[in-house]
Amino acid sequence: MTEVSVAKEDAVTADELVVLSGVNKHFGPLHVLQDIDLTIGRGEVVVVIGPSGSGKSTLCRTINRLEGVDSGSITIDGDPLPAEGRALARLRADVGMVFQSFNLFAHKTVLENVVLGQVKVRKADRKRAEEKARALLDRVGVGAQADKYPAQLSGGQQQRVAIARALAMDPKVMLFDEPTSALDPEMINEVLEVMQQLAQEGMTMVVVTHEMGFARSAANRVVFMADGRIVEQAEPEQFFSNPRSERARDFLSKILHH
């Protein structure tokens, strides 16, 4: 455990990778993101928590512009997010995303799911892409399932394939949008272990989750959101043991009892 935290501190530098400033977004009359300022350093693991409807998933999805924003700016590695088009597609390739509902391409095998982006977006040689895909699938522990279709896999396996698919693009940052919320309890850990490992290896991660154990052990920083605002951000130990805001105390009291 101590080893991990030492490695984490090394990884975090002053280098800013993702910067959101003054971001606002509405869904109709609902002001879902309100003046969000958030900076994520290279190698940092940021866990976003908060009650449902607080805007944390939307926040995650704005970082690769699956959701557009009404105002404010988002930059990744110094470049502002482009509008729709080729430039945006290129940028998205650098931002890995893992969804709550896995979203593996249902008509393609597991291997093809991991190969596709490399070949079609990165223009990688097919053979090399397959080698890399198999290595990644082995790394997340589903190498034996490479030739099956997503529907033949368990939820936990599918989510690990989805992580491999995102990693195949060599992303600068990985976004996890409630990656374990659709999983049966016994499959949550196999996914969290892969994410823990990624965090230890220095991957920059933004994780929207309800897994407080993961937040405690893997996060450099916890961001607490409520009603479209960032209410509080702190190191996990401090946040969980001594939350400053009333809203966070209330939230934690409801979830940490059991």
């Binding site: 690769n64 998205r92 995303m97 979203n103 593996l104 995102a166």
Partner: peptide, 27 residues
Amino acid sequence: VPMGQAEAARAIGLNFSQTLRLIVLPQ
């Protein structure tokens, strides 16, 4: 075809026509 399929395709950097040709239309 569930929305998530196209979202996942866009998230790995496929453009609109690739998303349509490779992911959405085949399904």
